[in-house]
């Protein structure tokens, strides 16, 4: 069984009088351990699809299963709980809680999970060190650069050891050097922990590193390319 199974997903919004078809029948599966990207111009439906997989949005038709659970049928509370325990999220810059320090932001998800304090510390401190934030763990988000903030967000997503991390345009608002460092870091973590990463992005830096790129256009899959060299295992 695949980690993510999306089958026949359609999503229609109403914008005033107009019906917008964000997704028009999408089928895609993602296996555990992948480092993949959903690509396409803005309005192509990539963020919508990512939101579907994260249970932030529900399909008009079709089903989404993650790790064997039908996330597309869950209500808000169940979906929140499912995300809490199985999915990590990374968004565009500025998605930390502004009143919490880097350390507190990083342990936030685990705190929601009810992981004891000592264990949280044990997991978060080495990871923050690993991403190069040693000595900054008590800083507030406003005292960190955009790249540093995203590193905190990555630790926050990873520290709770989810099977899947969904990253929605994680490099938007960052310069290319910072983006590259950040992506290398995620790739490293993907290999180290075996965590599945699924991006939505149109940043070339992301697409270069992704081992599989699913391209969407007008709500449909246009192409699905795997980097076969590296897939050989």
């Amino acid at each position: 069984m695949s980690l993510i199974e999306v089958s026949g997903v359609e999503r229609t919004y109403r914008q005033g009088e107009v019906e917008v078809h964000a997704l028009r029948g999408v089928d895609v599966t993602v296996e555990g351990g992948e480092f993949s990207a959903l690509a396409g111009p803005s309005g192509s439906g990539k963020t919508t699809l990512l939101n579907m997989i994260g249970g932030l949005d529900s399909p008009t038709a079709g089903t989404v299963d993650v790790n064997g659970s039908r996330i597309s049928d869950m209500d808000r509370s169940k979906a929140a709980d499912y995300r809490l325990h199985h999915i990590g999220f990374i968004f565009q810059a500025y998605n930390l809680v502004p009143v919490l320090s880097a350390y507190e932001n990083a342990e936030f998800v685990m705190m929601l999970q009810g992981v004891p304090k000592a264990e949280r510390r044990e997991r978060v401190v080495p990871m923050l060190r690993e991403v190069g934030l040693e000595g900054m763990i008590d800083r507030k988000p406003s005292e960190l650069s955009g790249g540093q903030q995203q590193r905190v967000a990555i630790v926050r997503a990873l520290a709770s050891r989810p099977k899947l991390i969904l990253a929605d345009e994680p490099t938007a608002n960052l310069d290319s050097e910072t983006s590259a460092d950040l992506l290398d870091l995620m790739l490293e973590l993907n290999q180290e922990y075996g965590t599945t990463f699924l991006f939505s992005s149109h940043d070339e830096l992301v697409l270069e590193r992704a081992r599989r790129v699913v391209r969407l256009r007008s709500g449909q899959i246009e192409s699905d390319q795997r980097d076969s060299d590296e897939q050989v295992a």
Partner: peptide, 16 residues
């Protein structure tokens, strides 16, 4: 709103 959206996305339940 945005902050609350993120917090809910990463798993905080609506009740909390």
């Amino acid at each position: 709103r945005r902050e609350f959206g993120v917090i809910q996305a990463i798993g905080m339940s609506p009740g909390r």
